[in-house]
């Protein structure tokens, strides 16, 4: 279990983290979600030992590791741009940590090649790093992190440079490997899709503080503030409430409302209607929901009601 207790960090006069506390259980993946530049990566540096906190503690499996240098923490970290060593080939990159932890060069390389097999890079061990594709680099980085059987896995926006298709494939792979590893994993990301797909629990960091944590469902169902609601992707967020998509009721008998904007999407239409009290309501209408109605356009009307029990207040 990883425990972060009251971590505080500031650079000169700028406060970066203000008393952050978190727990991640073995086998659990926690996603730290927040906009860029709000201290996520700094928090990860503290956990990795690349930086020292001004106050607070980091505990791993009951041991206080706050003052331990990174190499003694026995953890693994995946970096945003993979941080592969350009002077080493793929297998040597993977073997790097093994060598540091005392394996012989030959044995380490063998194990690295096996690990590359496991992440789907059979036969690519001798490839120079700059000849690998983005997805391949990602897999090398993953293999390098996993091969040492770390006590903790840290992921710093590891998928940010990949395209959607590749990302989903890799997410599945990483999920599988994480499940097999049974160690705590801390994922830092600004992408809620990534967070919700990989993590059992999500913590939301705003301006150096955790403003909400819980399962993805719990957060989506009850965002703690308008900011959180917007950040987790709700379209219709107002001063004291938000309307989640499931609160809208479509169909005959509902009040007809003017369409003020309509935009085609890959899988339907994004439609804005004039809601109660003139509030602009945004809806994503799937192809199925629009069946038989033709393309919505400005000037037409749409029958939409509101299930008030589903509206979120804070």
């Amino acid at each position: 279990m990883l425990e972060l207790i009251d971590l505080t960090l500031s650079y000169a006069t700028r406060s970066v983290l203000q008393g952050v506390s978190l727990q991640v259980a073995a086998g659990e993946t926690l996603a730290l979600l927040g906009p860029s530049g709000e201290g996520k990566s700094s928090l990860l540096s503290l956990v990795a030992g690349l930086q020292r906190p001004d106050a607070g503690r980091v505990q791993l499996a009951g041991q206080d590791i706050t003052r331990l240098p990174p190499e003694q923490r026995h953890i693994a970290m995946m970096f945003q741009d993979h941080a592969l060593f350009p002077h080493l080939d793929a297998a040597a990159n993977v073997a790097f940590g093994l060598v540091e932890r005392g394996s012989g060069k030959l044995a380490a390389r063998q194990q690295a090649v096996q690990m590359l097999d496991a992440v789907g890079l059979a036969g690519r061990g001798a490839a120079a790093v700059h000849t690998l594709s983005g997805g391949e680099r990602q897999r090398v980085a993953l293999a390098r992190a996993l091969v040492c059987q770390p006590r903790l896995l840290l992921l710093d926006e590891p998928f940010s440079s990949l395209d959607t298709h590749l990302k989903q494939q890799l997410l599945a792979d990483v999920r599988r490997h994480l499940a097999a590893l049974q160690v705590p994993a801390l994922l830092v990301t600004h992408d809620r899709h990534e967070a919700f797909a990989l993590a059992q629990r999500v913590a939301i960091l705003q301006a150096g503080r955790i403003v909400q944590q819980g399962t993805p469902q719990a957060i989506l169902q009850a965002p703690a503030s308008a900011w959180v609601a917007r950040f987790v992707g709700l379209d219709n967020v107002f001063d004291d409430h938000a309307i989640p998509p499931q609160a809208f009721v479509l169909g005959a008998g509902q009040p007809r409302r003017d369409i003020v904007a309509a935009q085609a999407q890959a899988d339907g239409w994004r439609v804005t209607v004039a809601g109660d009290g003139g509030q602009p309501w945004q809806l994503l209408l799937g192809v199925r929901e629009l069946a038989g109605q033709g393309a919505p356009c400005v000037g037409q009307q749409l029958a939409i009601g509101l299930d008030r029990r589903q509206v979120l207040y804070w």
Binding site: P69, F79, D81, G97
Partner: peptide
């Protein structure tokens, strides 16, 4: 790039080894 020595550190290398 500063991430490279950092990556080495997290992989178990001391500053000198890194």
């Amino acid at each position: 790039p500063p991430q490279l020595p950092q990556a080495a550190r997290t992989l178990g290398a001391t500053p000198w080894r890194s």
